[in-house]
Simulated scan of single mutants.
Amino acid sequence: MMPELIAWVLVLAVAAYACAGGTDYGAGFWDLLAGGADRGERPRRLIDHAMGPVWEANNVWLIFVLVIMWTGFPTTFQAVFAAMWLPLALAAVGLVLRGAGFALRKPARRLTQRRFYGAVFASSSLVTPFFLGAVLGGIASGRVAVGTTASADAWANPTSVIAGLLAVAAAAFLGAVFLCSDARRFGAEDLVGYFRRRALTALGAIVVLALIGLPVTHSDARHVWEGLTRGLGLLLVLLAAVCGLGTAVLLARRSYRWCRYTSVASVALTVFAWGFAQRPYLLPTSLTAADAAGAPQTLRWLVIVTVVAIVLIGPALVLLYWMDTHGELDSLTDADTQAGRAPGDTL
């Protein structure tokens, strides 16, 4: 039971990163589509203000995923990184450039500098979730096994492409929903409707991609398809659809208090549905959680460390998110970063 328990902790960490990190990627996606310097100034200012206090903390979940993989399931870690090193490297580069672009854009003094750093931040917010989704799609389709060599087919296949696009659409959906609430919290009433329309558009894109993905997974990822269309997998998919529909209703009724929770629930339930669909395999249909698990003593210590981490870090993250969503935190201003206008600057 120990390997299966740790496998579910891994799925939980993936779900947490998909929701927390996905919201940040979604904000970057809308930053990319905000328009030129004049038209996109207010949406981008809101995105900077909303993301500032928490964007670094959300990457804790990605680190948690990696630690669990290489400690609890070293065989899986080796197989995935050997077969998928290129998309994972591109995702990592995007992750680094995204953080650098976001951090450097605000203190930049000249318009050209802000445009450059903003383009790096926004484009990386599209690249990283796509390649992470493509990796999950390649795993779900059964193209990764122990000893699989790196090839384009492992991640550039129909299931991977659909999974990558779904990851981008889900991030855009979460980002727009949260920015609706942030716009109201910061008193930018005109941007509430702006992001509400984009949230509904992103949800529509998810529905279209999901419908396209049905025949694709049926033929290209049969084990996962069967898991998603029966039992607990199907139940979780239906619950995710209900939460997505509930989010759409709340957005249409301009009730923004609860739509954040329903949107997060829809994405998290989808990730758990994928976890149920793959079981008992970590790499369908070649490697189970029991076969991939590390030494029993290592697993016991991993469980202990995980419990300690949850006790120590969990409350701190909950407090951070609560303070952020209740307006108790503010991002740095130009005065704080000493990035005030200098003679000759164009802002």
Rank of each mutant, 00 (worst) to 15 (best):
T76P: 12
I139M: 08
R279D: 13
Y17R: 12
W225H: 03
R115Q: 15
F121Q: 07
L132G: 07
W274R: 13
D330T: 15
A89F: 09
S125M: 04
G94F: 08
V308C: 03
L166C: 06
A265K: 03
A289Q: 06
Y321R: 14
R254G: 10
A108L: 02
T201I: 01
L214R: 12
V303H: 01
R143T: 03
L62C: 12
L236M: 11
A265Y: 03
F276S: 14
T247N: 09
L10A: 06
P315W: 01
A277N: 11
W274C: 13
V308I: 07
G26D: 02
T159G: 08
A103F: 00
L200W: 05
R253Y: 05
A176L: 00
L165H: 03
V177H: 03
G314E: 12
G35R: 09
T247Q: 04
E41V: 10
L211F: 02
A342K: 15
P129N: 01
R260Q: 15
T71P: 06
G22Q: 10
D31R: 04
F130Q: 01
V271E: 11
A91Q: 03
A34R: 05
V168Y: 01
G164N: 06
M2A: 12
R300S: 11
F276W: 14
I310S: 14
Q297F: 04
D190A: 12
D324W: 07
L97K: 11
R185I: 07
A202W: 09
R253M: 13
P158L: 04
H223P: 11
L32I: 04
G101V: 02
P87I: 01
D48I: 07
A145V: 07
M2L: 07
A268I: 10
G246D: 07
F186M: 05
T112A: 11
F64R: 06
R109Q: 15
V242A: 11
F116N: 02
L239G: 06
G52E: 12
G213Y: 00
P215N: 08
G327C: 03
L104N: 09
V303Q: 00
G233Y: 00
A290V: 11
A205T: 15
P315T: 07
L191P: 04
A50I: 03
M323H: 14
D182Y: 06
A108F: 11
T346R: 15
R115H: 14
L228A: 10
A156D: 05
